[in-house]
Design a binder for these strands. Structure first.
Lengths: 251, 251
DNA sequence: TTTGGATAGTGTAAATTTGACACAAAGCTA
DNA sequence: TAGCTTTGTGTCAAATTTACACTATCCAAA
């Protein structure tokens, strides 16, 4: 008897899919993990698409998003937020799209609603070439993406906007950084997400005053310039802070 | 040949529904338009539910939400915002829920994803008793709602939170007020949505400095106290303001 | 007509936050 | 050891936020 007996008879729901905008940060700019659909689509439209799949009838939406992420990257327990539902009846236009859908077991004629999620991943935890399943996946800088398959470009824009708003309310950016990071890296991260320059000194002053960083007695090594001090995110301090109702992490 | 030939064969999609959180403001508190499902459910669970319905295969999600709103209230061109998708596979528990679903032509066995929207309505534009279709609909103060059918209570909470965040970025509250309103009414509206008291003088100073209100040379009449001046929302000034990138309407 | 009840409308001072701005220190490399 | 690169730091002026109390105006009831 397995854990979830329902799973035995579980079927893919032909009408509902989940797409994931998997954000990473290469310490310079915001990136997204995209699937290259290959030659099959090159003559018709964009090769790149968001990872996604149909959902099973016995899983809820968050589970489905986590599954898609797990299947692609092997990562679990990742920060995940819903962007919303997308579903123009004519969102699938091209022959190439139909071929692609067949290849992932979806029914190309069906009208599909997709529920989009974004996730925040520490890029160093996942290198595409390490996964056999995802040999066609790769990190692409957000600003270089001009088009995507289906309505995925629209979804990406919506995800960026949600992230931008969310980070003003909750310091979720730490999910994109390694455990130890420098203030400059955090600074560049905020600039990437908010898509505007932030004054260095003012940024540091403000983030330090929040008192949710633990300063480590440790410096960067091997950089060809003055090494930076390293910091950790302080979960406990953050919890204390929010329990007072504080929700202004904006710049 | 009609505009959209697909419409001829349009069918209800048994897997996807739309639910609407229709917010109103009775000049005292925030309210929501709910459907009373009647005796059929009284022995089993909450009678009250959000208005909603399955979507047609040929309409997009926003259209479906507008349709639900229109069918219930006759209102068109209403401010509308997506809350998100909800869809636990086991969100329909009770026999009464199945009965109810049958009565709105939904398939009770199917796994249904629902896409929730919230809308902002000027309450005076719609009095439930005026509509024959919606003889079982009524405005209920948000703070008095303790439970709802299905997962609608969860949806309502999410909608409230979205609204709270949104009003800090865009002055959408005016959609809940009549064309002419007083600063005190606007003040109470913000307090209702943000769910916290706001200092009267500070509120007035801040909202006036935004310069998106037109002061009318007209007073309230028939109130048993000093009558208030009336104001209108100034759409043009608002557009000017936002075109500079301004997005801080928060309190 | 007078009085009492209710809400509208108004200003200021202190504290906090924001925004603009420049240079010395530390490590690496050639 | 000289030069390159990035880190790390302080101040001042302006703007914003917070806390706070009394008079004015209308209606209703006596």
């Amino acid at each position: 008897m397995q854990h979830n007996p329902k799973k035995i008879n579980s079927e893919l729901n032909p009408n509902v899919s989940v797409d994931c905008v998997i954000f990473g940060f290469d310490l310079e700019q915001l990136t997204v993990l995209l699937i290259d659909r290959g030659e099959i689509s090159s003559a018709f439209g964009p090769r790149l698409a968001l990872p996604g799949n149909l959902i099973y009838d016995n899983e809820n939406l968050d589970m489905a998003a986590n599954r898609v992420l797990d299947e692609l990257t092997g990562l679990k327990n990742i920060y995940l937020e819903q962007v919303g539902a997308f579903g123009d009846p004519d969102r699938i236009h091209k022959e190439s799209d139909r071929e692609w859908l067949k290849s992932i077991r979806a029914e190309p004629e069906a009208r599909v609603i997709t529920v989009a999620y974004y996730t925040l991943v520490t890029m160093s935890q996942y290198k595409p070439q390490a996964s056999s399943f995802a040999k066609n996946a790769d990190w692409v800088p957000v600003n270089e993406i001009k088009e995507l398959a289906f309505d995925h470009f629209e979804i990406l824009q919506a995800a960026k906007e949600k992230l931008k708003q969310k980070i003003k309310i909750q310091p979720i950016g730490f999910n994109l950084l390694p455990e130890k990071f420098t203030l400059s890296q955090l600074h560049r991260l905020y600039e990437s997400i908010l898509d505007k320059p932030l004054d260095k000194r003012n940024f540091r002053r403000k983030i330090q005053k929040l008192d949710i960083l633990t300063s480590l007695r440790e410096k960067q090594r091997g950089v060809p310039h003055k090494p930076s001090l390293l910091y950790k995110f302080n979960e406990e301090k953050y919890q204390e802070l929010t329990q007072t109702g504080f929700d202004n992490f904006g710049f």
